[in-house]
Amino acid sequence: MFLTVTLTLLEGFLQTIKLFVLTLLFSLPLGLIISFGSMSKVQAIKVPVRFVIWVIRGTPLMLQLLVIYYGPGIIFNANVWGSGDGGRFVAALVAFVINYSCYFSEIYRGGIQSIPVGQYEAGQVLGMTKHQIFFKVVLLQVIKRIVPPISNEIITLVKDTSLARVIAVYEIIWEGQSFIKSAGIIWPLFYTGVFYLLFSGLLTLLFGRIERKLSYFR
C-alpha cells in the first residue's frame, strides 16, 4: 500500500514540479519586462502596468485561477484553453505566470531602484555606455539584493502550486485526497507534506549556496 501511495503521489508531484518549473521559466524573465514597464518614464506605459500589478497583488491567486479558467468561456463563449487535463494545466500555468511575474517585477524594481545613483554616475564619467553600466556594474549588485526575496517567493510558489487543484489540475494534493474516497485512508494526504518539505528543503540549500557565492562583496 505504502508503495502504491508513494508512486501515485510521485505522479502528482511530477505535475506540481512541472507547473513550478514552467511558471519560473516564464515569469522570471517576464517579471523583468514588467518591472521596466513599471519604471517607465512614459506615463501611458507606467500607469497601466502599475494598475495591473496592483490588481494581481491585491486579489487572491485562487480567484485569479478561476477567472482565467472560466472567464474566457463566459466572455467569448468558447473554451480557449483546449479540452481535458491539458487545457486545465495550461490555464493554471497562465494564471501562475501572470501572478508570479507581477510579484517578481516588484522585487526587480526594488532591487534596481536600490542601486545608488552614484554607481551609474561613476560609470558615466568613466566613459561607459548605458549598456555597459547595466551589465558590468549594476546587474550583479541587483542580483545580490534580490536573491533573498526571490528565494522566498520561489519557495512560496512550491506550495502555491497546490491551488491549481481548484480547476482540477491533478497535482499532488489532489492525488493524496483521492485516497480518502477510493481507499478510505487519510494518511496519504498528510504524507504529501513530506514531498513539499523535501523539495523546499532542497531549494533552501540551493539559495543558501547562491547567497554565499555572492557574499564576497557588499
Partner: peptide
Amino acid sequence: IRRKRLHFGLVFQSFNLFPQY
C-alpha cells in the same frame, strides 16, 4: 556626450567604487 566625458575625470565625495570588483 560619452566621448566628451573622457576629457574629464571626476572623483566623487562618496568614492562610488564598484563593490563587486
